[in-house]
Write a protein that binds this DNA or RNA. Structure first.
Length: 464
RNA sequence: GCCCCCAUCGUCUAGCGGCCUAGGACACCGGCCUUUCACGCCGGCAGCACGGGUUCGAAUCCCGUUGGGGGUGCCA
């Protein structure tokens, strides 16, 4: 069984935004396939017609492409219904499945009445019902014995068959349920390893039982990596947590950083490095090195990784990466890529996500700096007037390069008997609008002497 | 309720019986550098959930307790 060719699948359902948790599951699958020279299959599990939407399917493709998880084969379950129907008929014919007309309310009511555990009680098991309106097909699970899940991450997990209810496998509408379609496809696609998140572990015995009932022999190898959780340690939810991968893409996270960080929730390379490329991961990944306990999705650490990677980017790549984000700015028409290129190295080491890049140097592109009120109030005191006047005078005749601009500006401090900080701050606010930003002397050089002097005068005028 | 999983600093983890006085990273707090911010460098805070075993020796193995999570759908 282990010498079967490696064929893995990632099987998302298009019922919402593409999830960071799902990205990690996809990554583990993809890495194993690439490492073993196997196939990575993308299977869209769109059997639930009520909840699926075509735009979510597109979202899956976009997200996978963004992080570079390319697939070798693509399937959609909505196009494979005949296969599931055939499997259902086979199970019915062999007596392993039966039609049931109980509604959810019936099942609940009976459970309550007998005071036992909730769940289906096998009411229609031997009623010999035929297919018909309002009837669903249930799989008859064994009443005795145990089913063992051999899990590559967790070891053997044993389930008592008596605790496994008969699951519905075909809805009364004729549409197959996840468990059926999933097993039929895994068999048909000759999947060797089923790697899916921990939440599926409790239903895995049903998959195995079904697999055997269908006569497929040895089931695939299973591996259930732990779930990714939020700060309250609950499974990330599309509803309450910011988990859409596209959210991170739009905020300016690098795709390789996403993969690196996500891989680290539950796995680390043999030498304990934290930063690695996908190539390195393909080389070193091993399922039995995947941890068992749930991991918190820590955006702060993600940001730190991202900042680090942005800094390490060759300048040209950094500039190219910023361009699409600049295009979304409210002042996008004023943005100039070549001018940005001149400050890019200075910006690069000061941001954590790409969306922060252009706004940090907006004053280089706008006609007038956008004044931050707090910064202004903090710096534009009575000393500021003499500082601004002195700067204007000093700047008139010097060579317009960072070194001399710096010398001249800091010279004001001595001349006026104020601290260097005090001399620099009002000038920075007059020029950039804020107390913090990229190195000022370099910024001034790019801005040019005329514009610089004009901004000094404008600020001076506002002070009266 | 029942079934299943999990348990090392706040967080992600290293550790797979002696190398542990428990290592790294993020976060946080100091300091240095410095035209602001950031980078960089130096330092600090902080953890084996609890109780029993097994063993010469346990963070590591076993049992129990507690805690957390997942499942229990005609969702996936």
């Amino acid at each position: 069984m282990t010498d079967r060719p490696v064929r893995v699948r990632f099987a998302p359902s298009p019922t919402g935004y593409f999830h960071v948790g799902g990205t990690r599951t996809a990554l583990y699958n993809w890495v194993l396939a690439r490492q073993q020279g196997g196939a990575f299959i993308l299977r869209i599990e769109d059997t639930d017609e009520e909840r699926n939407r075509e735009e979510w399917v597109e979202g899956i493709y976009d997200a996978m492409r963004w992080v570079g998880l390319d697939w070798d084969e693509l399937y959609r379950q909505s196009e494979r219904k005949a296969l599931y129907e055939a499997a259902a008929q086979q199970l019915e014919a062999s007596g392993r499945a039966y039609w049931c007309e109980c509604t959810r309310d019936d099942v609940d009511a009976r459970a309550k009445e007998r005071g036992g555990p909730p769940g289906y009680d096998g009411f229609c098991r031997d009623r010999g019902l035929r297919r018909g309106e309002g009837r669903a097909l249930r799989f008859r699970t064994p009443d005795e014995g145990t089913t063992v899940v051999h899990d590559l991450i967790r070891g053997d997990v044993e389930f008592d068959n008596a605790t496994i209810d008969d699951p519905v496998i075909v809805r009364s509408t004729g549409v197959p349920i996840f468990v059926l379609a999933n097993v039929v496809d895994d068999a048909d696609m000759r999947i060797s390893h089923v790697i899916r998140s921990e939440e599926h572990l409790p239903t895995t015995p049903k998959h195995i039982l079904l697999w055997e009932a269908l006569g497929h022999g040895e089931p695939p190898l299973y591996a259930h990596p732990p779930v990714v959780v939020n700060e309250k340690r609950q499974k990330l939810s599309k509803r309450r947590d910011p988990v859409a991968l596209e959210l991170y893409r739009d905020e300016g996270y690098l795709p390789d950083v996403m993969l690196n960080y996500l891989a680290l929730i539950g796995w680390s390379p043999p030498d304990h490095r934290e930063r690695f490329t996908v190539e390195e991961m393909v080389r070193e990944f091993s399922l039995d090195a995947v941890g068992k306990s749930p991991g918190f999705f820590d955006v702060k650490k993600l940001r730190a990784f991202n900042a680090d990677s942005i800094r390490a980017l060759p300048v040209d790549e950094f500039v190219a990466a910023v361009e699409p984000f600049a295009a979304r700015l409210s002042w996008a028409d004023r943005f100039d890529l070549e001018r940005f290129r001149t400050v890019a190295p200075l910006v690069q080491e000061r941001i954590e996500v790409l969306t922060e890049a252009a706004p940090m140097v907006d004053f280089l592109f706008l006609d007038e700096p956008e004044i931050d009120e707090t910064s202004w109030a903090k710096t534009m005191n009575t000393d500021a007037i003499s500082v601004l006047d002195a700067a204007a005078t000093a700047w008139e005749s010097i060579a317009w390069v960072p070194e001399t601009i710096g010398e001249a500006t800091l010279g004001i401090a001595e001349q006026l008997g104020v601290s260097r900080k005090k001399a620099q701050a009002p000038v920075r606010v007059a020029i950039t609008g804020r107390t913090v930003g990229p190195p000022l002397w370099e910024s001034l050089e790019i801005l040019g002497r005329d514009v610089a002097l004009a901004r000094l005068r404008a600020a001076r005028a506002k002070l009266g």
